[in-house]
């Protein structure tokens, strides 16, 4: 899907074609939701953030300028909401629920990996998720998260190194 197509759909929607919005929504529905679930590891919270992201996008669309890709805008809004939610969660509960250490051996490989991801710094986690589950390049990730491409690359590298370290420790148990 090209960003040009997104722009056409947005223009059609603003001109009165409701189906154009439905098409746009369908394009990003699963990609965004999947990414949100991975980020917050809580389906209910992911749904809240997903809805809030789209509601904000709908309100913003009349001012949308095609200079910025729609996908970048969408994930930028979602990324900010995720960071806020993580911050709020930490404040409310002291730590993220997923930070609570559970016995890794009792979990499946995928559960163990997902848990390991939750233990790395959130900036590194965000870059890994944006690359792995949202399919963005590093220059796009830099734009979405508001950092330089070198920072995005560095976060990715240290994220993967941390992940390897955690997994090694767990595998040694």
């Amino acid at each position: 899907m090209s960003s040009n197509d997104d722009d056409i759909l947005i223009q059609n929607y603003l001109s009165g074609d409701d189906r154009a919005f439905d098409d746009l929504y369908q394009r990003y529905r699963r990609r965004l939701f999947s990414w949100l679930v991975k980020c917050v590891q809580d389906r209910r919270l992911a749904e809240e953030l997903f809805q809030e992201t789209f509601l904000r996008i709908i309100r913003f669309l009349p001012q949308y300028k095609p200079q910025e890709k729609f996908s970048h805008l969408l994930f930028r809004v979602a990324h900010r909401l995720v960071l806020d939610a993580v911050r709020k969660n930490k404040k409310d509960r002291g730590v993220l629920s997923l930070m609570d250490v559970t016995e890794p051996a009792a979990k499946s490989e995928s559960q163990g990996l997902e848990e390991a991801i939750q233990r790395i710094p959130k900036e590194q986690r965000a870059v890994i998720f944006l690359s792995e589950y949202a399919g963005f390049t590093f220059s796009e990730i830099a734009r979405i998260t508001g950092c330089s491409i070198n920072t995005a690359l560095g976060r990715m590298r240290y994220g993967l190194l941390n992940l390897r370290k955690i997994l090694k420790e767990w595998e040694a148990i």
């Binding site: 529905r29 939701f33 999947s34 789209f54 509601l55 709908i58 995928s110 990996l113």
Partner: peptide
């Protein structure tokens, strides 16, 4: 990278969420 790629992906959000968003989009439009 290979292990991350194998992690199961969540399906979409619930129907209710999609309907709320579609309704809002129509009202706003």
């Amino acid at each position: 990278h290979a292990r991350l790629a194998c992690l199961p992906e969540a399906d979409g959000p619930s129907q209710g969420i999609s309907e709320t968003i579609a309704r809002e989009a129509r009202q706003r439009r």
